[in-house]
């Protein structure tokens, strides 16, 4: 009965939403700010990838807020799943060799690991030129560490203190770059520094620096999340 009522409700909502989207200008929406940004992004920000200009310059505060949300989630997960919040002692087996994933998986991951780091850093550092950037690269970095901790469930793939330090340092540098802009240029997160040769790696002023901070922050938060969820699995 509940299911039937829910199905009716959803069907009604579906019809309503279809009608509403029928009223929307699909495929040729007004794009008021979109066109303004496309026209001026080249001169104002100097990044070849306009999406990056929007993420880090026009809507930089959104990005800061989003990094804070990741930080809040990672902090909350860390608080929830640390060992101290569980009264039971962990049933961690003393033999660490037994739970490992075998020769092929471990050595394969060890082989890929440095390559993944390079790919991640490449994606981050070319965020203002190509599709990609801090978020995507940060996820690749976090996955590199996650894979190591998956094949060695008992081993320590990354130190918690290092993660804490990187996430604080990256967040700090993002805000400090913004504050320097506030006191030298007059506005928080205003683009600074020489824009360089358009389309080259050293261009777009502070944008690559900001994206590096974002990449490190995202990588550290996701690695921290995976680490916390992974250690707890042992306890349950």
């Amino acid at each position: 009965m509940t299911k039937f009522a829910s199905l009716l409700f959803i069907a009604g909502l579906a019809f309503f939403l279809m009608v509403v989207t029928g009223l929307l200008p699909l495929g040729n929406s007004p794009m008021l700010i979109g066109n303004a940004i496309l026209d001026s992004a080249k001169e104002q920000v100097g990044a070849a990838n306009v999406v990056t200009s929007v993420v880090l310059a026009y809507r930089g505060l959104d990005t800061l807020g989003e990094l804070s949300i990741l930080f809040a989630a990672a902090s909350a997960v860390g608080l929830l799943l640390t060992k101290s919040s569980f009264n039971k002692p962990s049933k961690n087996p003393t033999n660490t060799e037994e739970s490992d994933s075998g020769f092929v998986a471990i050595n394969g991951i060890d082989l890929i690991f440095p390559l993944l780091l390079v790919v991640g850093m490449y994606i981050i550092s070319h965020g203002h030129l190509t599709p990609g950037g801090g978020f995507q690269g940060g996820v690749v970095l976090a996955i590199a560490f996650a894979m190591r901790s998956i094949v060695r469930p008992r081993g320590k793939s990354i130190d918690h203190g290092v993660v804490t330090f990187i996430e604080a340092f990256a967040g700090l540098s993002f805000i400090v770059i913004g504050l320097v802009a506030l006191y030298t240029q007059g506005h928080f997160l205003q683009p600074m520094l020489d824009q360089g040769h358009f389309g080259s790696l050293w261009s777009a002023g502070t944008i690559p620096l900001l994206y590096l901070a974002v990449g490190l922050k995202v990588g550290a938060e996701l690695a921290g999340l995976i680490l916390a969820l992974n250690t707890d699995e042992v306890n349950i």
């Binding site: 008021l32 700010i33 303004a36 940004i37 001026s40 104002q44 310059a57 026009y58 809507r59 930089g60 505060l61 959104d62 802009a181 240029q185 007059g186 506005h187 928080f188 997160l189 205003q190 683009p191």
Partner: peptide, 13 residues
């Protein structure tokens, strides 16, 4: 009004 990043509205926050 504070124009974040120095971008005149409506493009910025």
């Amino acid at each position: 009004a504070i124009f974040l990043g120095g971008f005149l509205p409506p493009v910025g926050i």
